[in-house]
Amino acid sequence: MKRAGTPILVFLFVLLTLGTRSVLARAIDDQIRDVASQLMCPVCEGRTVAESNSQLATQMRDLIRQRLLAGDRPETIIRYFVERYGESALATPPTTGLGVLMWLLPAAGVAAGVAWVRARVRVGTPRAWEDDVAPLSPGDLERLRRGLDEAR
């Protein structure tokens, strides 16, 4: 009983710690990270607010923290920044207007690829060419085996 119990206890312990961790995963710091990684830092080249260590980005994260604690929804906070910094504050193309194109393009690319493959590559056609050649004689097969061993 004791022997079987220990692994089960360990397993439960692991589950519990990991479980609490995934509850903590919604902790405020992770929520900040989620919002901040959807915004571009206005003063740095190509870094998100989540990544950047610039003072502006640090202050933006602090503002995000304050707004989240005050109960604002992430979308509201993001809109706040877009109203001030324009569309270029967003880290992803908007899902309106031509931004949609950005999201459709890779899918369209793969779809076009698959369509091209379907059009150009025929599957399951019997291959006739192998039939042209008669099976090798035992002597030839032996020569082949020796030749291959040599080539190795």
Binding site: S37, Q38, M40, G46, T48, E87, S88, A91, T92
Partner: peptide, 9 residues
């Protein structure tokens, strides 16, 4: 205007 395409995309 620069429309960024960042990590989330």
């Amino acid at each position: 205007v620069k429309i960024f395409v960042g990590p989330p995309y």
